[in-house]
Design a protein around this nucleic acid. Sequence first.
RNA 1: CGGGGUGUAGCGCAGUCCGGUUAGCGCGCCACGUUCGGGACGUGGAGGUCGGAAGUUCGAAUCUUCUCACCCCGACCA
Length: 476
Amino acid sequence: MSKGVTPRSKDYSKWYTDVVQKAELADYSPVKGCMVIRPYGYALWEQIRDFLDKKFKETGHVNAYFPMLIPESFLQKEAEHVKGFAPELAVVTHGGGKKLEEPLVIRPTSETIIWAMYKKWINSYRDLPLLINQWANVVRWEMRTRLFLRTTEFLWQEGHTAHATAQEAEEEAHRMIHVYQQLCEEVLAIPVYVGKKTDNEKFAGAENTYTIEAMMGDKRALQAGTSHYLGQNFAKAFDVKFQSEENTLEYVYASSWGVSTRLVGAVVMAHGDDQGLILPPQIAPYQCVIVPIYKNNTQKEKVFSCVQTLEKAFKEQHIRYFTDNRETVSAGFKFNDWEMKGVPLRVEIGPKDADKNGVICVRRDTGEKYFQSIDSFIASCKNTLKDIQDSIFQSRLTFRENNTFDVSTYDELKTVIDNGGFARTFWAGTSEMENQIQEETKATIRCILFDNTEESGHCVITGKPSITQVIFAKAY
RNA sequence: CGGGGUGUAGCGCAGUCCGGUUAGCGCGCCACGUUCGGGACGUGGAGGUCGGAAGUUCGAAUCUUCUCACCCCGACCA
């Protein structure tokens, strides 16, 4: 095995694949397009899952589980939905050695089977709102796959809610995109642009799609989460009506929203460097790694008494840590290994430090290395982790701001896209114009910003006055 | 599906053009010893149906035909 990873400047895509594999986040499986999420990678997903699950429950949602196999006919019921998903379905045609009466598709998303059930469960306005989330795997037969970013099977959560009014469903869709924003910014330390998708980019079967868009280390955009206002589309397709307080029969309004294991890829690409991963403390499986250094048993005893002091303090402060007491590899190897794995804070304790009752700390984000007494280390560790979290976020925010350019002409837009970065501009164009721009520049409208930086301007293509500010970028 | 590439030890590769005893190298792995503060070293060792099938030949990793798989770039997508 070679020692480092391909430098980002040489081949960003290769760098990404190298890091994912060398940090032991995931590995290629014997099944084309499917990866194995390894324990260290899965631990990242668990952090994401735990944060979101708590948030979902705080906002009134409950978890449930629906079948992975969906009757093929269900997909047909919503015209746009089937059009969007039909090309990428995996279909089960046989079971128990016999051909099935009706083929079953492996869910690419669960709207249809969930709405088939909602029809049974929803009768009255008293049954609403219905706020269900599911943690599940889905399968989409993609042409080209990449570890975490786009795999044939992936893990995600999908929320599916039913409401009595359009306004309530819209509010729900907005609420959840903001939960995702909070996840990205506060936990993953990735700043995101929040906004709405254009008709070209919206979900198959949605009225409105909301999105958070993050900038990766190569200045391309990654959609990090989506939330949809589905209107009455699925209610009509599955005939889900409720009796209102006024005793009228109405179709219910819906939302759905999801994030996936793609977010693990986002963390890699947003923060990583040529040494490997850089994990924000909030998501790091180990926030601190202790590397004891010694030559003989006398030193070992002395060093480990310090290690024990640290471990006790970490436990008390609920800091996730790992003591690397492998005797088969050198200290230098361990340093590189944990840097590859992105552990935010490394604590080295050698005989010299133990004599002085201190430790050497090394920050992964800045590389800063300093001596501290054990007492002051223990007293400041939480703050240091917080500082790392904040400064990683700040550095990403600065990076994004430095690479987001306001443009007012198509030529400027092209220049920004060619040089790499986000182009922010006003828009009053059509779907066709958007397609044309995509063909010429490879860039798409990532989102229509919720929060404009200016109230109004002129459309970058048509010159018409506009209050719609958008982000153009090349996307993953 | 279009374009490009690769299949030889766990990983990365050489050997293939121009067929010739026992198929090599680096890393990793195992054992022992010396090491241990930025990817340690020595000695010994284990590990291969050369992607698969058929053919040519006295003889095939190497030539021919067919086939399978995977990777990269595009179109599609969270």
